[in-house]
Design a protein around this nucleic acid. Structure first.
Lengths: 238, 238
DNA sequence: ATTAGTATTAACAGAGCTGTTAAATAACAT
DNA sequence: ATGTTATTTAACAGCTCTGTTAATACTAAT
């Protein structure tokens, strides 16, 4: 045992021969069992990038969590930036998906808007680190976001334009109070986002955060409060 | 010229002999002129920590901005953490100071609250990087905040308790709508903070951000909107 | 002018991080 | 079995960052 290699080698499904050209497509289909090394690394990367952001999630940590050497990360994804982009793309894709249903609703104005607020909030709740992750990336590695912009900006703009347009109509019609539609959308976005941005801080304040149910309860209250805020802004009453 | 030293050496006022024990107190008094090296480093550190946060503001950069070698930073402050704590303390002190006047007002409820919102907002506006800086530190280097907690937590709690108490009174008295005081304070804090947290993002969206006056105008509108939101939440009307 | 103490620098040490590579091992086709 | 290819590892190279140190320049007091 000259090299000091670990005794047992884990056996995973094999990934494609040359990961960069994807020559062989011998991926296992619906197999829920043992991941390929490539998948294990992706999963670990997603977890760690969300938890720590780009800079503080090191390739060594990611590989460690996936149970391999960090050389494997470079073997399959070549650079840290590469794998980060894959993770980012995946997460943004989920965000877009979660908004699709809202866009199709053409019901009463307030119902649609409330549903939009609620959907946005629920998406963030089901990805509690997303707000932090996105903010951290925008602030510290904006160039990584920039490369995604052309792909996702149009969708975001469409969603914003949709709601802004409807708010403007109602405002002109006089069925809601006169508001600046852009400001109202900003109200909603910042209230929702900052709930999750500041969640760790809020947890620190909460003395009884020992119990697991705390967060669920807190988020329910918070969501109701945000909706009440916006509704009273638009209608006066609740 | 064996050592390759720079030709002209800058002459600054001298700081104390042994900076750690402060043996000599030969600091220049009201002198607004040339800073001591120590002061130059502090000023550069404050600027860079606010701009980039703890991790990305390197000792080399700070010293460079102050016009000296990074060895000087360690000479005067021993470690990066030391100088950071000094900067943090200074900034938090300013924050506390800015709140003092609000605490003394005992006028009508809404006037006091509006003044509180406005003061908080204006403080953030006059330190546009403060929200980012604090958030970045809480998230990435919480241990640095922890060491400040015992000093500043009581003051923060007092301010919060003051407003929460008054909101609760009014709510029970029936002069405002029934609200959860904690949620309302959270509404205010997150609306104000996130305005500045997301300022860079907002600037990116704003097409006409070329003109310098943009930010001033944006912040005025935003502040009015936040106050309107809270007021309509409490009173229905505006 | 000499000297003692202060301020400053260049150079280096040590740590952690990303990315590369040669060699070892496993899987597989023949 | 044998050879070919895919996977994996250990070791290392190069970079950046913090902190230290020995040597040098400056200042002021005598």
């Amino acid at each position: 045992m000259k090299t000091g290699r670990k005794t047992s080698r884990k056996t995973r499904g094999q990934a494609s021969a040359d990961p960069f050209t994807d020559r062989q497509e011998d991926r296992i289909h619906g197999n829920p069992g043992p991941q390929t090394t490539e998948q294990a690394i992706m999963a670990a990367a997603e977890e760690l990038f969300l938890e720590k952001g780009y800079d503080r999630a090191t390739t060594v940590m990611i590989a460690g969590k996936a149970g391999v050497t960090h050389a494997m990360l470079h073997y399959y994804f070549r650079t840290k930036e590469h794998i980060f982009m894959k993770v980012l793309e995946k997460i943004l894709e989920e965000l877009m998906q979660s908004f699709r249903p809202v866009m199709l609703r053409e019901g009463a104005f307030w119902d649609t808007l409330e549903k939009g607020i609620s959907t946005h909030f629920d998406f963030l709740a089901s990805h509690p680190r997303f707000a932090f992750f996105l903010y951290d990336t925008v602030v510290h590695n904006p160039e990584l976001i920039d490369r995604m912009k052309e792909k996702f900006m149009p969708v975001i703009m469409k969603i914003l334009a949709f709601h802004i347009g409807r708010i403007r109509e109602e405002s002109e019609k006089g069925s809601i109070r006169s508001v600046d539609p852009v400001q109202l959308v900003m109200d909603i976005a910042t209230l929702n986002l900052s709930t999750f941005l500041l969640l760790p801080v809020a947890a620190g304040f909460s003395s009884g955060m020992a119990d697991a149910g705390w967060m669920r309860e807190f988020l329910d209250i918070r969501k109701a409060e945000i909706i009440a805020l916006i509704k009273s802004r638009l209608y006066g009453d609740i």
